[in-house]
């Protein structure tokens, strides 16, 4: 599960640019602060690597990998 906290996002695009599988794109609508937050474009490509979660300077995107946890667990 990819969670995006749009109001924390400052639109730096690091998450979408560095996603190894191209899951994320950039929204066409502004958040309340005037930034373009990321959107999930190809959810099924997400491997849950959490690179976006760690790279984000604003705690605005994070992964909860329930399904994989269940499979593992």
């Amino acid at each position: 599960m990819i969670y995006i906290d749009e109001e924390f996002c400052k639109g730096c695009r690091i998450c979408s640019e560095f996603c190894p599988t191209g899951v994320l794109g950039v929204s066409t609508t502004l958040n309340s602060k005037g930034y373009y937050p990321p959107v999930v474009e190809q959810a099924y490509e997400c491997h849950g690597c959490r690179l976006c979660e760690l790279l984000c300077p604003e705690f605005a995107i994070f992964i909860v990998n329930e399904w994989l946890d269940e499979q593992a667990g």
Binding site: C56, P57, E58, F59
Partner: peptide, 30 residues
């Protein structure tokens, strides 16, 4: 609203951060 699970390590009253867009400082904090 629900937030990032690691917000429990942060002083929420001062968020979002004052870092500029794309500042590496936020990544270090994260």
């Amino acid at each position: 609203p629900a937030h990032h699970r690691l917000l429990r390590y942060l002083r929420k009253e001062v968020l979002p951060t004052t870092f500029c867009v794309g500042c590496g400082g936020g990544t270090v904090l994260n």
